[in-house]
Write a protein that binds this DNA or RNA. Structure first.
Lengths: 243, 243
DNA sequence: CGGATGGTTGATGCGTTTCAACAGAGGTGG
DNA sequence: CCACCTCTGTTGAAACGCATCAACCATCCG
């Protein structure tokens, strides 16, 4: 049953509808060549898949079948609470991996924020690689460790920062992640509701915080989905005024 | 310099003042015998140390020198923000490990909540064990994975739950962790400030939430440090009313 | 053109923080 | 041994920030 669900998802796959592409195709798509042995080994077991906006990649509690790497698009990891609310634990963009080092069942839900192309690695084969290739395990642990660090930072955000500070902090994070420079325009890949569910706020509060930042000239916004950070240090000042 | 600090800490060590005990002593103290090869190997490289209440075990950013396991007492993992506030990411009790799988530098600060006896494992030797013993790496990864899961749950708490719900949720967590049954009295190992810094609240709000839970007979409190959960399900109801 | 969707702004109420006062436990020194 | 102090926990009153509810605008699409 679970298998059927997963296979059904592959129908979203666009480049060659219905049948997952072998990994080789990625090289052409992304222009990225495997840099080392571990990466090369992973490549060989990966197949591409495409998930439409707001579709579920896997649910919390599902048996682990695949691990993923994002080629393009964006994904949110989240938990749904009993009363329909949602806490997003993090956002994933091109190049990010998820679903690795989960034991038995996924510990959170993964959903596409916008159309996303991912590479799916069968978990069983990843595990085999981890056992046989010395570098692989370590690499995954480092990945996990980084995630833990970023979640700790997020705890600080949710525990001790005011709305404006959370939004400012989020913009800085996004800016860095996207490699945008001061004064450079970049796209916000998620909508206001996603931002709100990540920051533990309401859509309205996120809007007001953004408006406030615009009013005070710390940021500019050509469109609702685009932002320019006029002065990185000015934004950092907002974040640090946590009290 | 860093070495000197760490060595100085060992002076707190009480059973044989000044010189760290070889691990064998633990067997007698805790009555726990090594259950398998990995555990046994760890035992041989561990030395005991004692940290007084509110002392620092290591600071965020310190180079990783030791990994720890708690024999008795309690420890908090936390981050200190620029303006003196503190976010506690989790509490650790007897049997819990921390400081493992950190790369280069600790990603958070660890402090003793109350007098704590720990076993310190030199990081270099732990790493060697991880490379040579097949079971060790996997065990550490599982540990890390559990931590990630619990931090995700905590994100939900901080992001979407009201004060009463957070406190109720915290009590349930503590109760389970300590293995206390419904109607059984158990000790709260940390003070109100620690609880507040963990839950992203103020001391006063934590107090009020506790008083409210007492008033409604969901819990009883023989002393400020002791709690009895009269009805687990009643408390769970409080937690789930997240909206 | 009409309806749906996502984003923004305004007014109001509620919950948490803040500030303040006080109570009880534990420790110290006269 | 008691007076005194400190530290932690508790409760009250007022201020403030965010959520809520509601209206409105812009864009997109049928």
């Amino acid at each position: 049953m679970v298998n059927a669900t997963v296979l059904a998802r592959y129908e979203h796959f666009s480049p060659s509808k219905g049948s997952p592409l072998p990994f080789e195709a990625i090289g052409k798509l992304t222009g990225i060549a495997p840099v080392d042995e571990a990466e090369d080994a992973l490549q060989r077991i990966g197949t591409m898949a495409r998930f439409g906006r707001d579709t579920t990649i896997f649910n919390e509690g599902d048996p682990v079948q695949f691990c993923y790497k994002i080629v393009s698009g964006a994904v949110r990891r989240c938990k749904h609470t009993v009363n329909g609310r949602r806490q997003i634990s993090d956002f994933l963009l091109a190049g990010d991996c998820f679903g690795f080092l989960q034991f038995g069942r996924y510990n959170c839900t993964a959903e596409a924020i916008r159309d996303a192309v991912v590479i799916a690695y069968p978990q069983i084969q990843v595990e085999r690689l981890t056992r046989t290739m010395p570098g692989m395990g370590h690499r995954l642990v480092v990945l996990m460790s980084e995630r833990l660090t970023s979640m700790q930072d997020h705890l600080v955000r949710l525990g001790h920062q005011a709305a404006k500070e959370r939004v400012a902090s989020f913009l800085l994070l996004l800016c860095e992640r996207l490699g945008a420079k001061e004064g450079e325009c970049f796209d916000i890949p998620m909508n206001r509701q996603d931002m709100a569910d990540y920051l533990g706020l309401t859509v309205e509060t996120v809007c007001r915080a953004l408006s406030e930042l615009k009013r005070t000239k710390r940021i500019a916004a050509p469109s609702p989905q685009e932002v320019i950070i006029n002065n990185l240090d000015a934004l950092r000042t907002v974040v640090d005024n946590e009290d």
